[in-house]
């Protein structure tokens, strides 16, 4: 599903250049649930943003679902993002003046799904994350956990090939974190490929594989026995 070869990325700041990713090689199969771990500043988000086509790589190759991701203009990148990827952010990134339902329906709008079908689908995914009753509420009327569940429903709505979650539990307390992880595990159980960036060990243990980043390279890549989040809720 995802194949990355010899990926390099540096940030230029004036005359200085910060080499963040220094040759990453890694691939992800369909249906995997991968945790990307590492200390703060180790380049986890940078990697995930490149995978999400929100940022560009400097060197190396990236193939997503057998499509080489290379020299994309903004329009193509937007179309690929819409077709292949769902995003879950630490700070939720919901549009504050749109209701939960409208937020979930947004990717479908950009997929040119008809209005009625859009509503139905959005409602279906809201139901899956247990927020059907909150459909008409604005994000400001929801708790942190609820907001993240809306964001997950939104990421799911477009039925992407891969879900990318950058510290999805970073802004949540542990109980809520486990609820969100429980949801992510269930989505994965249904066959979806998911990458979760985290620096919390317990969250990482709830995935099926842990990739450890340090100083811009992968220092460890191991399969783990998944801890079910439902045991904690």
């Amino acid at each position: 599903m995802i194949e990355i070869k010899d990926l390099h990325k540096s940030y230029k700041m004036g005359s200085n250049s910060l080499h963040v990713l220094k040759g990453i090689n890694f691939s992800v199969e369909e249906g995997e649930l991968v945790a990307i771990m590492g200390s703060s500043g180790s380049g986890k988000s940078t990697l995930l943003n490149i995978l999400g086509m929100l940022d560009e790589l400097d060197e190396g190759s990236y193939t997503l679902d057998n499509v080489p991701i290379k020299d994309l203009n903004e329009t193509k990148a937007a179309q690929y993002r819409n077709k292949f990827l769902g995003f879950i952010f630490q700070s939720f990134n919901l549009i504050n003046y749109k209701s939960a339902l409208e937020n979930v329906a947004l990717p479908l709008y950009y997929q040119r799904v008809g209005r009625k079908e859009r509503q139905e689908k959005a409602l279906k995914y809201l139901e899956q994350v247990g927020l059907k009753e909150w459909a008409t509420h604005l994000p400001s009327e929801l708790s942190g956990g609820q907001k993240q569940r809306v964001a997950i429903a939104r990421a799911m709505a477009a039925e992407p090939k891969v879900l990318l979650a950058d510290e999805p539990t970073g802004a949540l307390d542990s109980t809520t974190s486990y609820e969100v992880m429980d949801l992510i595990q269930k989505i994965n159980d249904a066959g979806n490929t998911i990458l979760v960036v985290t620096h919390e060990e317990d969250i990482a243990q709830m995935c099926k594989r842990i990739v450890h980043l340090k100083d811009g390279v992968i220092v460890e890549d191991k399969k783990v026995k998944q801890v079910r989040a439902s045991e904690y809720v």
Binding site: A78, F87, N93, A158
Partner: peptide, 16 residues
Amino acid sequence: TKEIGIRKAMGATPKI
């Protein structure tokens, strides 16, 4: 700007 970023992540093209 941020809203535009979100929309882009959701698949909005520059033209849209």
